[in-house]
């Protein structure tokens, strides 16, 4: 689904969003009042400028619209791969965006992420995965790396990876794997405005993704291991 169609479905009462290149931002009218929107289109590579711009918008929202929920609609093929981005410290720009979203969270802004097309690796880390709860459309694509590239790097035969990926959600691409592992809370189907209203009703919570991953049997180790370290004797 393209971003404009998505916005119409999410905000049947209207939205005011300005598109500029791969970036867009604005507000939408939800059943719970105004929602701030920040997003990208066309599987944008997230480089220093885009991360910086999104962070600036988060700061503006914190300043000008206290408490307004923030909806992240980021379509990304991953971090931008270039020597220039590394030279300028791209990881620091992404970290800055994460800090700005934490400031918003600390100030009572709800942060909702919806993967509507693609979410890959570092671009996913620097966007939707930073939300309180990340949701996805069923047709969206989520991954770190495709299996042929993974096979080349890990030296594990592709056939073996393909076979294992039928039973294990742990390495293969696919939004269902991320759902099973708890990173995606749920898939949004049907009336998207209604799904958004439900998400806006969720009370503030900590990071519950390990619990969901364990309950859904996609990530059986993380919660228990973290708990053991947290409460180990000594």
């Amino acid at each position: 689904m393209d971003a404009k169609t998505l916005l119409e479905k999410l905000f049947p009462n209207g939205s005011e969003v300005a598109f500029d290149g791969l970036y867009f931002a604005g507000t939408g009218e939800s059943s719970h009042g105004k929602v701030a929107i920040i997003g990208s289109i066309d599987a944008a590579p997230i480089g220093v400028e885009l991360a910086f711009r999104m962070a600036g918008e988060v700061l503006r929202i914190v300043r000008d619209a206290p408490g307004r929920p923030i909806l992240l609609l980021v379509d990304t093929q991953g971090q931008r791969l270039s020597r220039r981005d590394e030279l300028l410290g791209i990881n620091g720009y992404m970290a800055h965006l994460a800090k700005c979203l934490q400031l918003a969270r600390n100030n009572g802004h709800k942060i909702i992420g919806l993967v509507y097309s693609e979410a890959v690796s570092g671009g996913f880390l620097a966007s939707s995965l930073l939300s309180d709860r990340c949701y996805a459309l069923p047709e969206s694509q989520v991954r770190v790396m495709n299996l042929p590239a993974m096979s080349r790097i890990t030296k594990i035969p592709l056939e073996r990876l393909e076979e294992l990926s039928k039973s294990s959600p742990v390495f293969a691409p696919g939004v269902k794997n991320y759902l099973k592992m708890g990173a995606v809370n749920s898939l949004w189907e049907g009336d998207l405005a209604q799904r958004l209203a439900e998400a806006l009703d969720v009370p503030p919570e900590g990071d519950s993704r390990r619990q969901w991953g364990e309950e859904r049997e996609g990530r059986k180790l993380a919660r228990g291991v973290a708990e053991r370290v947290r409460h180990a004797a000594g």
């Binding site: 995965l129 790396m145 993974m150 890990t154 742990v170 991320y178 990173a183 993380a222």
Partner: peptide, 23 residues
């Protein structure tokens, strides 16, 4: 990469935990 999805989600949880701790 051998457990790429779990690793990516793990890093995301580390990020959230660092930010919560600093807060």
């Amino acid at each position: 990469l051998h457990e790429a999805n779990a690793g990516l989600i793990g890093v995301s949880e580390i990020m959230r935990a660092v930010l919560a701790l600093r807060s």
